[in-house]
Amino acid sequence: MKIAIASGKGGTGKTTLSTNLASLIAQTEKVVLADLDVEEPNSGLFLKTDLLHSEDKFKMIPEWNDSACTLCGNCQEVCNYHAVIQIMDSIMVFPELCHSCYACSELCPTDSLPMVPKKIGELKHSSTGDFDFIESRLVIGEEQAVPLIKQTLQYVDQNFDNDYIKFFDSPPGTSCPVIEATKDADFIILITEPTPFGLNDVILAIETMQELKKGFGVVINRYGIGNDDIIDYCNENSIPILAKIPNKREIAETYSKGELLFDKFPEVKTELAKIATYILALKTQLA
């Protein structure tokens, strides 16, 4: 079963929830956690792990080979991303604009644009002893997170069967990287905070999940600050609130040190246990 942990707004507790929930559920279930926030992966900071395997990840881009090129201009014409441009008597490729569609390469009459790999990130597979942890990180300067997220999901699919509960710590926002990270999940946990920003952004995330026709529930983090608008919103729209994690300065301090919360704060553990119960019931239902 695949569970994605997402939020519209950044900094609402996706990573905190992912690492703590994975650690708690791993006490009884087979668990793998994948950090799909490849632009700023943080889950690994909260886990003590041993590295099992690492590999570079690539995207394919065209590389101009001038020997047979007749400068017919076809490549430039077929590229919808302006990633291949003819300047005077040479062809320039702009890798950061390329989406690896292969059109320029395969439609070139002289095979002058063979596709070559370009490193976009690194995937690490490690173990905490209790569960497997996969992290991918985008090379700084690479702009597209989606290809790396896609390849990370493929790695998880190939290495872990359906007995596993697979958690995906997703990127913030509602655009393409989030869609990629959540579109294959069986259930989405949206974590937010009870503030006007939190409410505004979780509504965007909810609309996104409705568009994707996904089942989802809401977790309220830092419960106690702000107001109760999010609770009213969920009640009015029949959206399940899975848990309310209390607001406490000591929790923020423990988080800041990179430590897990559930062993230290029984009130957090109680709330995580509610989510765990929900997920396990869902798993039985799906099976």
Binding site: G11, D37, E39, E40, L138, I140, E143, Q144, P172, G173
Partner: peptide
């Protein structure tokens, strides 16, 4: 926006 990807660039 948060991150290091296209919107930030």
């Amino acid at each position: 926006s948060p991150g290091v990807g296209c919107p930030v660039v």
